[in-house]
Amino acid sequence: MLKSRLKQMWKNRIQYRFKSPLQSNCPEFARLFPQGAKLQRVARGFEFTEGPVWFGERQVLLFSDIPANIIYQLSATGEVTVFRKPSHHANGLTRDRQGQLIACEHGTRRVTRTEMDGKITPLAVSFNGKKLNSPNDVVVKSDGAIYFTDPPYGIEPQQQEQPMQGVYLISGDRTETEILLVADDFEKPNGLAFSPDEKTLYVDDSQRRHIRVFDVLENGKLGNSRIFADMNVKEPGLPDGMKCDRQGNLYCTGAAGVWIFNPQGTHLGTILTPEQPSNCAWGDDDGQTLYITAQTSLYKIRVNSPGIPVFPSLPA
Results as ranks from 00 to 15, higher is better:
14 I>W: 10
97 R>D: 02
109 R>H: 06
45 G>H: 03
109 R>N: 09
102 I>H: 05
80 V>R: 00
51 G>N: 06
88 H>M: 14
23 Q>G: 10
36 G>D: 01
39 L>S: 04
58 R>Q: 15
60 V>S: 01
33 F>A: 04
36 G>A: 05
93 L>F: 11
66 I>D: 01
82 V>R: 10
94 T>W: 05
99 G>P: 02
85 K>V: 08
22 L>E: 08
58 R>M: 15
27 P>Q: 09
77 T>H: 08
74 L>F: 13
20 S>E: 08
113 R>F: 12
36 G>E: 02
44 R>Q: 13
27 P>E: 04
108 T>A: 04
41 R>I: 05
104 C>N: 12
56 G>L: 11
106 H>W: 09
86 P>Y: 02
78 G>N: 00
22 L>P: 01
76 A>G: 14
39 L>A: 05
54 W>Y: 11
77 T>M: 06
23 Q>P: 04
38 K>I: 02
75 S>T: 12
61 L>E: 00
56 G>F: 09
107 G>N: 03
54 W>M: 03
98 Q>W: 13
64 S>D: 02
78 G>F: 10
39 L>H: 10
15 Q>H: 14
25 N>F: 08
31 R>F: 14
25 N>T: 09
19 K>H: 14
88 H>V: 01
21 P>T: 09
47 E>S: 12
35 Q>R: 15
73 Q>F: 12
57 E>L: 13
66 I>N: 00
23 Q>H: 13
